[in-house]
Simulated scan of single mutants.
Amino acid sequence: MSIRILLADDQPMIRAGIAMLLSAQEGMEVVGEAGDGLQAVAMARDLEPDVVVMDLQMPQLDGVAATRQLTADDFAAERAHTVKVLVLTTFSDETEVFAALRAGASGYLVKDGAPTELATAIREVCAGNAYLHPAVTRGVIADIAGRLGAAAPVPGLLERLTPREREILSLMALGLPNREIAARLFLAEATVKTHVCRVIMKLEVEDRTQAVVLAYQNRLVQPRP
């Protein structure tokens, strides 16, 4: 079954380009295009998309407010399943990022990223995962790290990892995706994925984000100023 996508952006040419890109992807279907936040919410109610690709700066209702409505419990109650919101914008300012994430967005991309990254992000958020642009990830991780300043390390936790696995985890904590870690360490991306899986398994956490939190909590890396 195809992933049903609703595009929300106030620039028609941008919407047309994204629609063309996604329509060429196997297993994806663009079911509608909205020019403002109010229209996006109304169309999401009628069309029941799986993912809304949301710009932030729009008339009538901005992307953050529209996201808050789309991810609210009462909106989800009207549908067979919840809608996921993937923010796609020109802004990577931390204030905008955190506002969107707090509103319920599952992912955040900037428009200068690679076209293929958008399709990957849509698949990830549709599957229930989070997806953040690397520049955004670093800010989110720094915020988490700041909140963990007083957290006590877990004795012996990092000793479960090999030196290579600790190296991989430290780069994960900097917000680097697998392909950048692979390039930095001169490894195949598949090898990095294997190491990441082992790190998650050995630390007994559910996902990459929780592993990164433990990396900061256990002082493997320090928050950057």
Score class of each variant (00 low, 15 high):
Ile14Trp: 07
Ile14Asp: 10
Ile14Lys: 06
Ile14Glu: 12
Arg15Ser: 13
Arg15Trp: 08
Arg15Pro: 12
Ala16Asn: 13
Gly17Phe: 02
Ile18Ser: 04
Ile18Gly: 04
Ile18Trp: 05
Ala19Arg: 14
Ala19Leu: 08
Ala19Ile: 08
Met20Arg: 14
Met20Cys: 11
Leu22Lys: 05
Leu22Gly: 04
Ser23Asp: 15
Ala24Glu: 14
Ala24Ser: 15
Gln25Ile: 05
Glu26Pro: 09
Glu26Arg: 15
Gly27Val: 11
Gly27Leu: 10
Met28Gly: 07
Met28Val: 08
Glu29Ser: 13
Glu29Gly: 02
Glu29His: 13
Val30Asn: 06
Val31Pro: 08
Gly32Met: 09
Gly32Lys: 05
Glu33Pro: 05
Glu33Ile: 09
Glu33Val: 12
Glu33Leu: 06
Ala34Pro: 12
Ala34Tyr: 03
Gly35Leu: 04
Gly35Cys: 03
Asp36Met: 00
Asp36Ala: 01
Gly37Ile: 00
Leu38Gln: 15
Gln39Gly: 05
Gln39Asn: 04
Gln39Met: 03
Ala40Cys: 02
Ala40Met: 01
Val41Phe: 01
Ala44Ile: 05
Ala44Tyr: 05
Arg45Ile: 03
Arg45Tyr: 10
Arg45Met: 11
Arg45Pro: 04
Arg45Trp: 12
Asp46Val: 13
Asp46Pro: 07
Asp46Leu: 13
Glu48Pro: 07
Glu48Ile: 10
Glu48Trp: 07
Pro49His: 05
Pro49Tyr: 03
Pro49Ile: 06
Asp50Leu: 08
Val51Thr: 09
Val52Ile: 07
Val53Pro: 11
Val53Cys: 11
Asp55Ile: 05
Asp55Met: 06
Leu56Ile: 15
Gln57Asp: 12
Gln57Gly: 09
Met58Ile: 08
Gln60Leu: 14
Gln60Asn: 15
Leu61Cys: 14
Leu61Ser: 11
Gly63Lys: 08
Val64Asp: 11
Ala65Ile: 08
Ala65Lys: 15
Ala65Arg: 14
Thr67Gly: 02
Thr67Tyr: 01
Arg68His: 03
Arg68Gln: 11
Arg68Ala: 10
Gln69Val: 08
Gln69Ala: 10
Gln69Asp: 06
Leu70Tyr: 00
Thr71His: 00
Ala72Leu: 01
Ala72Thr: 01
Asp73Trp: 01
Asp73Pro: 09
Asp73Ala: 10
Asp74Met: 00
Phe75Ile: 00
Ala77Lys: 10
Ala77Asp: 15
Glu78Leu: 11
Glu78His: 11
Arg79Asp: 04
Ala80Leu: 13
His81Glu: 15
His81Lys: 14
Thr82Tyr: 08
Lys84Gln: 14
Lys84Ala: 09
Val85Tyr: 00
Val85Ser: 00
